[in-house]
Structures are given as structure tokens and as C-alpha cells.
Design a binder for these strands. Structure first.
Lengths: 206, 206
DNA sequence: CCTACCGATCGGTAGG
DNA sequence: CCTACCGATCGGTAGG
């Protein structure tokens, strides 16, 4: 379940746009998530695609290229979303809630890619590695800035903003455990429970 | 900084108890955290210990044995702590706070091992792998049971307990990012900020 | 897209 | 604790 049902319906119906390359990347996401980047071999990937290992190289340049595609695909979506939310004229606490809901949605509907981007990025090679680390740092600073604005406006508990960012982002990545567990509550229930606990924890209590 | 200063002072002073095996395990924790289990080679480890790769096998059986040692060392400490806290006669919310503070403390002072146990356990081999997964599942159930008791007692917001557990545990593991960041606030500040955000989010707001 | 194959590196052993 | 070395597996290329 790499891709969101709604997002990709058109593509699946017409079928012709799911190129071989996209299939390879999707299968790579699954494999890298299951085994980790280093432990997943190109022969594993070839088998799951249904070709010989050598044939993969007609569609991709290298194993790390697959990791670039996955990591930056995810990073770009998050960066785009935060830019969009920053410009809305709503209270900071609502901005945070919107961004959190986006994180939760991405984690639920694009699980494999988001997970890989989160846990395997350290295996990127160096022009890409430092690029990715920079994007991450910038993203967290922007999120912290929203929280700080919220604190100044009295909408958010006065706490250390970088610590709050760290908690929020990692808490959301915990959906990974939910995703693989048996007794799953529904996606909506999960989302609302998380928002209750996390955003609730940020609001002033009187 | 594998081990806690306080915990290990005696050992460092007398010096003779830090056996070669313990040094190897400590260096392995560092390497597995930096590179990941699969990407860290026994030759890397040998170099960081200061011997040839073959010599390591006079002190350990295999690479995976190092992973066992690290994962179960950590798991056992957490299991022991939760058993201890369960038996105290204090409100559920205080139990949760105590356990959270223990998690935070472990993450700060035994960073490498806790991190490896958290992220690399999937590379354990199968008698150990399922054993570890069982311990994890049991631990989370016990934590959820404390939260549920707290909800029934009206000390904790009525939310889905497994979701709360998932959020709490992953939020705490976010200390990893703090640990490697430059502008670190102090460990005590960090701990108190986390408790404010997390336990604050659990308490009823009126 | 395949067969055939490469150099490098891996975890681990033998033997001293 | 070392030197020497093993079989397996890796990412990737050549050539068709």
C-alpha cells in the first residue's frame, strides 16, 4: 500500500502512466522499509519487480538513486505544505494542528516512503546527504518559529519550542507502530486521538 | 559517552573490571548507532577497538551476539523499572510520569545502547527476534494498562490508551535529535519540558 | 530485458 | 592476539 487510493485512482485506471521506473521505486520503498536500506539487496528488489537484477539498471542509475527519489519526494511535500500553511491568516495553534494533521495523513497514506525517508536518510551520499540534512534543519526551525509566535500570542503554553518540535515530529512517526499492529483503531480515530493528546498538551490549562 | 558517569564511577576507578568484552560491546553500540547494524562492519569495530578483526572473535561469538547484548540489556532495564513502578501505591498519572522520566534519563545517559535497541532490533535473528518483539508488546500493554487505570480513576483524559503509549514512547525517542544538536538546552530543562508537554497533555483541562 | 561475470567487501575460521 | 584466507554476497557493467 504505497500510494493513497484517492491520489492515484486516475493513474491506476488508465494504467499506462505507472511506468516501470515508478514500480521499481515503489517496490524499493517497501523493501527499504522492511529490511533497511543496507540489508535490502538489488537482487531482492529485482525479484519483487519480476526481472533480473541487471535489468533494473535500464531504469535507474544506482541503488542510492532510489533512496534520493524517496527521501526528497517526501521532504519536498512537507516543505511545500509548511510554506502553504505559513501564509494562511489563522492562529498559530491552528497552523500547528494543520501541519500535524498533514504529517499524520502522510504517515498513514504514504507509509513506506515516509518511513524510509525518516529512518534511512543517513545512507544518502554526500551531495544529497547534506542537502537533506539542511532541509530537515530548516523545516524544524520554521515549525519552531510558528510555535514561538503562538507562545508570544498566548495561544500556546510557554515551553521550549525546539523541544516541542522534536516531540511532535517523533510522536507522529509513532504511527509506524499503529500501522503494523493488529487491533488498529480507524485512521480518523487515530488522527483525532493524536491531535487531542498533542495539541491539547500545548494549549494553556487554566 | 556510552555509560552514565554516576553508575560506572567505581568501575572506572578500579579499572580492572572494564573487560575487553565490555569495551567491544560499548564500541559496537557507538558504531551501530552511527552507521546502522548492517552498514557497520566487524573491521570498523576492530579498528575502533584497536585490534585486528579476527581477534574480536576471542571475546564474542558473532556480530549478532553484540546486537543481542545491546537490545536485551536495554529491554531488561525497562522491564525491571515498570515492574517496580507498577507496585508503588501512587496515582496512575504519577506512575506514568516516573516511567517517562526513566525513559528520558535512559535516553540521555545511555544514548547509544537505547538508540540501537530502538532502531536496529529488526536485525536480530529469530529465537531472539521474536523474544524481543514479545517483550516489547508486553511492555506496551502494561503501560497502556496503567493509563487505562488512570482514565478510570479520572486522573487522565479519556483517550485511546494504545495510541497514548505510542505517542509517549516515540516522543521520548526524539531525544536522539536533541542529543546530536548544537544548541542543547540542559538535560534537566529538556526533561521538564518534555514532562510538561506530554503529561500536561494527558491531564484533564477544565 | 537477459546471461555472464567483475572487483570489493563481508562475517567468520584455521592455525599458530 | 596475529596472518592468511574462505565462501558468500554485494552493487554494478559488458555485450547482445
Amino acid at each position: 500500500m504505497l500510494v493513497c487510493y484517492l491520489c492515484c485512482m486516475a493513474r491506476i485506471k488508465t494504467d499506462s502512466h505507472t511506468s516501470r521506473r515508478e514500480v521499481i521505486i515503489a517496490k524499493a520503498a517497501l523493501l527499504f522499509r522492511e529490511k533497511g536500506f543496507k540489508a535490502a539487496s538489488m537482487r531482492d528488489l529485482a525479484e519483487s519487480v519480476g526481472v533480473e537484477a541487471a535489468s533494473l539498471y535500464n531504469h535507474i542509475k544506482s541503488k542510492t538513486e532510489l533512496l534520493h527519489e524517496l527521501c526528497f519526494g517526501v521532504a519536498n511535500r512537507f516543505m511545500q505544505k509548511i510554506e502553504e500553511v505559513e501564509q494562511e491568516k489563522i492562529p498559530a495553534a491552528e497552523k500547528i494542528e494543520k501541519i500535524l494533521r498533514f504529517h499524520i495523513h502522510e504517515m498513514i497514506h504514504h507509509y513506506e516512503e515516509v518511513y524510509v525517508s525518516d529512518r534511512e536518510w543517513k545512507h544518502l551520499l554526500d551531495p544529497y546527504l547534506s542537502n537533506f540534512q539542511n532541509q530537515r534543519r530548516i523545516y524544524r526551525k520554521r515549525l519552531a518559529a510558528i510555535i514561538e509566535a503562538g507562545i508570544r500570542a498566548g495561544e500556546i503554553e510557554p515551553i521550549d519550542a525546539p523541544t516541542a518540535v522534536l516531540i511532535l515530529l517523533h510522536a507522529v512517526s509513532g504511527i509506524e507502530s499503529w500501522h503494523r499492529s493488529r487491533h488498529k483503531i480507524s485512521a480518523e480515530e487515530l488522527e483525532n486521538n493524536m491531535i487531542t493528546i498533542l495539541v491539547g498538551g500545548l494549549r494553556p490549562r487554566k
